[in-house]
Structures are given as C-alpha cells and as structure tokens.
Design a protein around this nucleic acid. Sequence first.
RNA 1: GGGGGAAUUCCCGAGUGGCCAAAGGGGACAGACUGUAAAUCUGCUGUCAAUGACUUCGGUGGUUCGAAUCCACCUUCCCCCA
Length: 408
Amino acid sequence: MGIYEELQARGLIAQVTNEPEIRELVNHGKATFYIGFDPTADSLHVGHFMALCLMKRLQMAGNRPVVLIGGGTGYVGDPSGRSDLRSMMTPEIIQHNCDCFKKQMERFIEFGEGKAIMVNNADWLLKLNYIDLLREIGCCFSVNNMLRCECYKQRMEKGLSFLEFNYMIMQSYDFYYLFQHYGCNMQVGGDDQWSNMLGGTELIRRKLGKDAHAMTITLLMNSEGKKMGKTASGAVWLDPNKTSPFEFFQYWRNVGDQDVLKCIRMLTFLPLEEIDKMAGWEGSQLNQAKEILAYELTKLVHGEEEAQKAKTASHALFVGGGDDENMPATELTDAQLADGSIGVLELLVACGLAASKSEARRLVQQGGVFADGEKVASIDAAFPAEKLRIGVKLRKGKKVFHKAVLKA
RNA sequence: GGGGGAAUUCCCGAGUGGCCAAAGGGGACAGACUGUAAAUCUGCUGUCAAUGACUUCGGUGGUUCGAAUCCACCUUCCCCCA
C-alpha cells in the first residue's frame, strides 16, 4: 500500500487535480509540496495540526515538504470560509504570530538539510510592484471566473473588499514562485482552499506551460456538519498555555460516538489494521476508543509524559479515587478573604468557573456546584481559611474540576 | 458621483416615545436520564450590596418629564443607477 492509498483509506484526501499523476508522484517520493499557514493567531490549532500531520506522513514516504509561513498573505487576509471581513493585523502582530508558528512547527516537522524547509512569503510578496504584478499576473486571471468561486460567492451578499479579493492572486503567486525557485510541484491545503489552489496551478500552466498539482485535505467535521477543533470559547490550541494538555485531552475524550473512528483514522498515526478492529466497537466499548483518541493526540501534541498525566487526571476525576494532582488549580491570597473566609460566589469567580457573581449564583441555585464532593446548597456558603489551606476541590457541572488553595 | 435601505444582547431576529434588561429561535451553561456520547425533557442566559438599583440596542451630540424608538452629524455595510 502506497502513501496515497493510505491517505485515501484514512479519509484525508478531499480533492485532487489529477489522481493518477499525484498517486505516482507521492508514492515514489517525487513530490515537493507546500502547505501555507497564515499567521492569524499566536498559536497553531487543530486544523493546522491536521495539515502538519499530513505533511509528516508525506515526508515519511520520501516527499519533500515546504512550510510556507504567510507573513505576506497575512497582510491581505483570506476571505475563504469567512462571512465577514477579517480585522487587519499590524505588522508587529503578524511578525509575532509568525515567530510563534515557527516554534511550534519545529516540534512536529524536521527541518534542515535534505529535510523540510520553511519559507516566508513576505520575502517575495512585500517586494512586488503593483503595476508589474498587474501586467505579469493580473492578466492571467479572469474576474468572471474568480467570482464564480465558492469562496467569493459566499461573500457576494455580505460584502467583499478588493483587498480580500486579491488573496487568491497572492496565493497563486506563491505557488508560481515556489514552483520556479524550489521545484515545488504540488500544493496541499484545507478543502476550503481548493479554488485558491487551482488559481496557482492555472497560473503556472499559463505562464510556464507546465503542470503543477493540488490536493486538498478533508475538513474535519463532526456529525452535525460543524468544523471540529472549536469550542464555545474558541479554537482548541496546540499551545499548552492557551489550551492545557488536560483540556486538550478532554476535548477529544468527549467527541460524539459517530465521530470517534473518523477522528482516529484521520488524526492519529495508529496503523490502519488496528483502527479497523475498532470499527466494530459499540456502546460503552466506544468509550475506550475515545480514550485512545485523546491519549494519542495529546501524545503527539504535548508529548508522552503530558498525555499520561492528562489520562491519569481524567481517570481520577471521572472513574473515582480522589487524585487531584493534575487538577487545574487557583491560588488564593489572604487579600481575597473577608473575615477569614470566602463565599462560594466569590470563590467560583476567583477560580474562573463563573464569569460573574450572577452566573455563580445561578449555578449554585441550580445545584451545579460541588465542593469536596458535597453539593453546595446555599449561595451563602463560605469556606474558612483552614479549609482552603488544605485545598478545596470544586466541581462545576459534571465535567469541570478545579482546586482552590490558599497560599500559605 | 446620485438615490434608497440597514446596524438590537453570544448569534439570528422582533421591537417605531413610557407596559423594555428588550418577544421568538439557535447556541452556551445547569438539572433529570446516561457511557465524560447522542437524543429527550426541565431550568437558565446584562451586572450588582438583588421584591430594588445600575449599565446596554453602531458612535457623538440634541429634542423630550421620559429615547432601542424622534432629529442632526459621523462610522460601517447592503441594494439600485453611473
């Protein structure tokens, strides 16, 4: 089984420009492919992670990865999959985000001589001259065709600025540039990038009369058709300071039944035979699959040690015992106490379990708050200093645990 | 450049002088049921020293006893004409 077949079996390939040629290319390690990452935040998220994994798989099969950091395209902003205008980022923020991306990527992909390379499109895009670009590249694009692209169609009602309209041209130019300077013959990206990527292959064909390829990765959707890797409070980040390994673990531990196998197949590096065995699992046995998924992913992103810790903590909290070693905790100071104790409401807010005291009040009144295993019955409940010094284990709802400790 | 419309709470969306902290839906959160899943039902969803008070309907001023609602200007967006 070649790498192409494996990717297919894992459900990772969404669309390709020319299947036989791409199959030939990647199965024989003859592809030099690039994936672009726009510095839209100061950490990578799950979507990026999928792309990096794909990169790694292709690299293991002998192909050469090129990581493109969008230091230049970040100035423009990709309208794909967006219903509104992206807020414009300052050069400082873009630079900062680029640096953060670089650091995180080095954990997943090996860079260096004969290995992966990293380039930044700021190096060539920022130098472009408007008139030259229009004459050289602009003439190759049909506005009529561009407007037919899905990524713009969605924006025709809400408004699309000329700035964003140019994103496709920038991305196409990247491919054109990499094709010439790095021998890059394939672009890989999320499925929402399809039209932007075709812009590149088209440009190469028109300008150079040569064929380049494009392959898109299936977007990871849950059974409700929503993009995975998002929580109510935002993306699931790879940066442990933004999404702790425990939270990361729990996110995957809690995916729906219908989505577990798909996630394992697409995201982990477990052998396919092993995954196929799980396909028959049902009911509570599927719970095991979720743990495997959570463990494997946490291991990939945060390392084996953190994965083990997260798993242990999860077991302690949900299966029983009372191990609170890896529970998220908040340290209180004497200043937060009044008359040697602190009320539940204040405590919940201090620990970040409630956004306001009103919310805390609601939680307690609805019976959703537990302290050391006991339901907190009244909003007037208070915790004395002696108790806090030992540590109070708080539970909000069924799944949110937090420890509050008074600093000695 | 000319004309017409729009902006409401996390999102969609009602509200055209007092009965508005603002209908309805979605989401989120909590309870019951469960397997840390899904479905379902219930509650809840601005803040606070909480039968009350305070802040919020794009922004800034104004009219009024009283403004999400009326007026002026500004900002952003949409539609039509060029």
